[in-house]
Amino acid sequence: QLQWDTLLTQFKHRYASYLTAQLNEWQARQQSLQEHRKITTTQRTQIEHLAQIIRAMDPQTVLQRGYAIVHHKGDLVKSPSQLREGDDIELRLAEGTLSATLSQLKEP
């Protein structure tokens, strides 16, 4: 019985340190995976936020809200001072384009 107890104790000591090391390695991997998951979730949130900003700034989204993009001779019109009465302009809308001749300029 004494020999058996001695062998069992030796076995426990040898494999206890091995199993402890394995357990520590497994826990470290688990923690690493949790950290990666947290990073991935943060990155996913950042990407979704950036996608929302990009969609909001998309000219087509702006046009869907009822705005128009005005061009004169291929140039983007940003100010009425770029135009004169009689100029041909092009208005890009959400669902198509209109051509028009400017008949009157009004001051804001």
Score class of each variant (00 low, 15 high):
Gln43Glu: 06
Thr45Ile: 08
Ala51Val: 04
Ser79Val: 01
Tyr15Leu: 07
Thr41Val: 04
Ser103Lys: 15
Leu33Cys: 05
Asp87Val: 00
Ser32Ile: 01
Thr42Arg: 14
Ser103Tyr: 07
Arg84Glu: 11
Gln30Ala: 10
Thr61Arg: 07
Gln64Pro: 02
Lys38Asp: 13
Thr20Pro: 09
Ile47Phe: 02
Asp58Leu: 11
Leu91Glu: 00
Glu95Met: 09
Val62Tyr: 12
Gln22Pro: 04
Arg92Val: 03
Leu93Trp: 02
Lys38Ala: 15
His13Ala: 08
Tyr67Ala: 06
Asp75Val: 15
Ala68Gly: 06
Ala16Pro: 01
Gln10Met: 09
Ser81Met: 13
Ser99Phe: 03
Val62Asn: 02
Lys106Asp: 04
Ser32Met: 09
Leu50Ile: 12
Glu48Ser: 11
Gln10Pro: 02
Arg44Asp: 07
Thr61Ile: 04
Leu50Cys: 07
Gly74Val: 00
Ile54Ala: 01
Leu93Cys: 01
Leu8Thr: 15
Pro108Tyr: 13
Ile89Gly: 01
Ala94Thr: 01
Ala51Gln: 10
Trp4Gly: 11
Leu7Met: 12
Gln60Phe: 05
Ile69Asp: 01
Leu19Val: 11
Arg44Thr: 14
Gln22Ala: 13
Thr97Ala: 05
Gln104Leu: 04
Pro80Thr: 11
Gln64Ile: 01
Asp87Tyr: 00
Ala68Met: 01
Thr20Ser: 14
Asp75Pro: 05
Asp75Ala: 15
Lys78Thr: 13
Leu33Thr: 06
Gln3Trp: 07
Leu98Ile: 00
Leu2Met: 12
Gln82Tyr: 03
Thr42Leu: 06
Glu48Lys: 11
Asp5Ala: 14
Trp4Arg: 15
Gly86Tyr: 04
Gln52Asn: 13
Gln46Trp: 10
Gln60Tyr: 05
Ala100Thr: 03
Ser79Glu: 14
Thr40His: 07
Phe11Ala: 13
Arg14Val: 05
Leu63Met: 02
Leu2Val: 15
Tyr67Trp: 06
Leu76Thr: 13
Ser79Lys: 06
Asp5Glu: 15
Arg44Cys: 08
Ala51Asp: 10
Ile69Met: 12
Glu48Asn: 09
Gln64Met: 05
Glu85Cys: 09
Tyr15Arg: 11
His49Arg: 13
Thr6Gly: 10
His71Tyr: 13
Leu7Gly: 14
Ile39Asp: 07
Phe11Cys: 08
Ile69Ala: 02
Pro80Ala: 14
Ala94Glu: 04
Trp26Leu: 15
Thr101Asp: 11
Ala16His: 12
Leu102Gln: 02
Ala94Tyr: 01
His71Cys: 04
Asp75Cys: 11
Thr45Asp: 14
Lys78Met: 06
Thr61Gln: 06
Thr61Asn: 05
Ala56Gln: 05
Tyr15Glu: 00
Ile89Leu: 00
His49Pro: 07
Asp75Asn: 14
Ile53Met: 10
His13Phe: 10
Arg84Val: 06
Phe11Tyr: 13
Lys38Met: 08
Arg14Gln: 06
Arg92Trp: 05
Gln10Glu: 12
Ala56Glu: 07
Asp87Arg: 12
Arg29Gly: 09
